[in-house]
Design a protein around this nucleic acid. Sequence first.
RNA 1: GGGGGCGUAGCUCAAUUGGUUAGAGUACCAGCCUGUCACGCUGGGUGUUGCGGGUUCGAGUCCCGUCGCUCCCGCCA
Length: 603
Amino acid sequence: MDRKMHIYRTHNCAELRKENVGETVRISGWVHSVRDHGGVIFIDLRDSYGLTQVVINPELEFHQDLEKWRVESVLCFTGKVVARSVENVNPKIASGEIEVSAEDMQVLGEADVIPFQVAKEEQTPEAMRLKYRFLDLRRERLHKNILLRSEVISDIRRRMTGMGFHEFQTPILTASSPEGARDYLVPSRIHPGKFYALPQAPQQFKQLLMVAGFDKYFQIAPCFRDEDARADRSPGEFYQLDVEMSFITQDDLFAVMEELLSGIFDKFSSKKIAQVPFPRIPYREAMFRWGTDKPDLRNPLEMVDVSEAFKNSDFNAFATVVQKGGVVRAIKVPGIADKSRKFYDDMIKFAQSVGAKGMAYIVWADGEVKSPIAKFMKESELELVKKAGGIKDGDAMFFLADKEKSVVNIGGHVVRELAEQLELLDKDVFKFCWIVDFPMFEEDEETGQTVFSHNPFSMPQGGMEELLNKNPLDILAYQYDIVCNGVELSSGAIRNHNPEIMYKAFEIAGYDRSVVDDKFGGMINAFKLGAPPHGGIAPGVDRMVMLLADEPNIREVIAFPFNQQAQDLMMNAPAEVALRQLQELHLKVVMPEDKKEKQQSKK
RNA sequence: GGGGGCGUAGCUCAAUUGGUUAGAGUACCAGCCUGUCACGCUGGGUGUUGCGGGUUCGAGUCCCGUCGCUCCCGCCA
């Protein structure tokens, strides 16, 4: 045999073509499937690139060795590339016009019985998929997602550096910050009783890089937050494309992100991008129309205010709400007059499940008004409502009445559910938008205190003057989000780089000067020594890939995700550590009362 | 921390109103098969019905508790 032949492979499993017929080749990979005819045996050998069919003829001495291994074993075959006859070509695989006629076989990695099938599409419990993640990652869907993620990240780097950005690393062991989510803490051995925190984002560092004069920064940055999971939020850690720029306005930043995101989404998905530049929607408008700060612009349904129509209505339930300062909002849904009674009842049930006391509806069909509440309404009131919704025959409206905050929230859920039920969302389009003009402060519902509503480092619109003179709850910030198809991709801001404005903003949020100096000393001191105006944003990489891969769950685009309880079932993390390690770190574990018994009974 | 859903073979699922020996596909094991490509054929059930308790003549099925997974709320500057 050719001495120069590589010991594992001359070709990968997706490479061989008609042109290679007659060559002696060597390929290695996993046994994808076996078709044993008693005499001739066919094996689909799989690697990251694809599949190649290997034929084993009965006269070969290793023919009977087939019993030694099974599906998902790793084998190496040496043999001749043979053309398949026309009727035997497999158009489903790239190498389908040829096959490799085995002359020699090496077992490189024998596989035991696998806990779930790799080659076949079948539902598998997620706990098992996570425990055997390396097996799950062999399956086509996940394998493709992770490769897509890799390509997206490398494309992001190419585009960012192409636009003049530099990538810098920032510390993973840093200080806890009083704002935001719970931190992951790392105890210090050298400083008893003191802790590092893993960064929730490199927020202060990237701003310090601007103060350091680097002008355009980005990083594929790991972020750590001890918060509970959602379908689009993996607990523990996630990645952001962290971006910061100096001497820019909001518009400059928007232009950069629009170029980047439209470029990437265009390249890695066949879906259309609805509109570039992305439409800009003020936060308050988004909340009013869709009941959320992450509206799905594919959804044609939205809310309108109809409080006036019910204010003096005989429909007491609603009239009372309005008279007490609440609101009535309506959702117009075109062309659903023919829906069954059950559909309407189910929607009411849904509204109640998300906190509504009830939900009313009116259906206009065949020139008539059908509704449980119409009999309480005057002709003029019905007209008012009809006009507010631009109602035509065949349309319907749903009505919610409560305090504004509840109505907005519940209505948001109903708007989404209706779109889902009625399949109103176009699956072939990405609709991006900017949500702008977030309020700088909001009222804490429990304490009634004024708190930062988003990022405390955002520049208040109007600067010091507004901080001094305006009702804090009316002050807007240069704070913005990018939303795509109802998924919040990122938030960002033009930063507050003026120490005095910073002190004032924190004062309004209840922190005095010394707290700012103590907790954000590094940054505030930097701002006293010449800070450029700057701003940035941080789109979630995992969520971007999730949208591009068209996956409903973020774990499908992360190679080794935590489960919902923030555990790594494969590596068995978190885990107890040796007493000695705790002692070195000056730590003592105090188990919560309800966990103590379980701990005991385990032992 | 709270609410919803789910939990039957390694995996996907079935099992009538509470009824007798818990079935099927796949995986697995044994055998057959020389052109398949999710090969096919024959045979084999490998099970603490998540766990614990209760009701009942009888529980996979009903009740209570508990555990696990998942979706959501809270949380997410």
